[in-house]
């Protein structure tokens, strides 16, 4: 319960910062002010300034936008394609469709994911869109496998037998009975993949393959901070802390939701 609340608070805070940055930021993230570079946190700049004199708080807020957007769309791709594939594989367990989908999954898992992400973004050009694609592709088998795994035992449950006896089609049973009974798992895994996406985006941006300047991103801020870390530790500490808090928030939210939505616990509450 505690982790659910803490996770929700952290997540909402990051989300709010990202949304607020569309309308207002304390400073301008595009204005360079070299004389004011690498200032420690002060009243004027709550989180200090970076190596180009930009307001760190504003950079963090705008960077949240990039992180969340990339990770969210990547999860969307993974769920949008993975869940139907998993449902189809489970509905045709042991058939050629199931085999094909599972072999495709094995194949994607065989690739060191970030290596391929690096390869794709490097060769097709760095940028937010390619980062989303690279991360999203690896979410597909995660969701396909999870959905199939959750759906298979359901297909042997008696309420599915009853629905089949009643003459319902596999598609209708998948949508009406199977999917609603897997949503808890999907929500939990969704938050986990979301947080992994944020870490992956930060990693890609750090090596220069994510969102390109002038779009601020947390990973890029860390890359810029690397050579300044001895002079002004705050330029490295602040973006990293932002990443940790966001990922932590999402993980706590996921854990909290899992405890809350666990059908075994639910039965007890009823």
């Amino acid at each position: 319960m505690k982790s659910l609340v803490l996770g929700a608070v952290l997540t909402v805070l990051v989300l709010a910062a990202a949304l607020l940055s569309f309308a207002w930021t304390p400073g301008d993230v595009t204005s360079v002010d070299i004389p004011a570079r690498l200032q420690p946190p002060s009243v004027q700049h709550l989180l200090g300034t970076d190596h180009l004199g930009r307001d760190m708080l504003s950079m963090i807020m705008t960077g949240a936008r990039t992180s969340l957007a990339v990770a969210l769309v990547a999860v969307g791709i993974g769920m949008g394609l993975g869940v139907p594939l998993g449902l189809a594989a489970a509905a045709r367990q042991g058939g050629w469709l199931d085999e094909t989908i599972m072999r495709f999954n094995d194949l994607v898992f065989a690739f060191p994911s970030l290596v391929i992400a690096i390869l794709v973004t490097a060769l097709l050009g760095p940028g937010a869109i390619n980062a989303i694609l690279a991360i999203g592709i690896f979410n597909i088998p995660v969701f396909a496998r999870l959905t199939r795994g959750a759906a298979l035992p359901l297909w042997h449950r008696e309420f599915i037998l009853a629905a089949r006896t009643a003459g319902k089609s596999a598609l209708r049973i998948s949508v009406e009975h199977i999917l609603p009974n897997t949503t808890n798992l999907l929500i939990v895994q969704g938050t986990i993949q979301f947080s992994l996406g944020i870490l992956a985006e930060a990693g890609l941006s750090y090596v220069g393959l994510g969102a390109q300047p002038p779009i601020p991103s947390w990973g890029r801020m860390l890359a810029d901070a690397q050579t300044m870390v001895a002079l002004a530790p705050h330029v490295a500490i602040i973006p990293g802390t932002a990443i940790v808090l966001t990922v932590l928030g999402l993980n706590l939210l996921g854990d909290g939701l899992r405890d809350r939505l666990d059908p075994r616990l639910q039965g007890r509450a009823a």
Binding site: R157, F159, L161, A162, H177, P180
Partner: peptide
């Protein structure tokens, strides 16, 4: 069916 707990969504 057999299982009164598994027969219903």
């Amino acid at each position: 069916f057999q299982d009164p707990y598994g027969s219903f969504n």
